[in-house]
Amino acid sequence: MIAKKPSVEEKEITCIVCPTGCSIHVKRLEDGTLSIEGNQCKRGYDYAETEFIEPKRILATTIRIEMAKVPLVPVRTDEPVPKEKLDEILDFLANIKVKAPVNCGDVLVEHVLGLDANIIATRTLGVDTCDKIACEI
């Protein structure tokens, strides 16, 4: 489902630091150092380097919630997590449920899958026990 971390030792990376969108070529040389070409600035260089070594992403999704006016609470990781772990985190989050009330910023899962990132709520949802159909029409 999610693109595997390439085993190849070189990669074409589109920079997202600014609108220019440079195409940066990164290659691991025999001595283990990286050759980075095509960037037009230092920020592009840094971006390409991280993206080549260990690409990370903020994951934002939802978790099922009970007793709230909506069935889902939006959440995200508070730190970027390795791209290759996203699938596993998503599977994990699909299978858990929380209960209202939840406050924006609450940690809902600490160190998800043992990573250095927590899952935090991004919306405040109070207890709302009204009939689910009557809500939010």
């Binding site: 903020i58 934002a60 999704t61 939802t62 939006p74 995200r76 924006c104 910023g105 991004t122 919306r123 405040t124």
Partner: peptide, 25 residues
């Protein structure tokens, strides 16, 4: 913003990559 749960809001204003509902909050 309440349905834009993806991150990337408020980079300039709050210097943070907030989700939509978080920015709204």
């Amino acid at each position: 913003l309440q349905q834009c749960i993806h991150p990337g809001f408020g980079l300039h204003e709050f210097d943070d990559e907030l989700a939509g509902p978080e920015y709204a909050q």
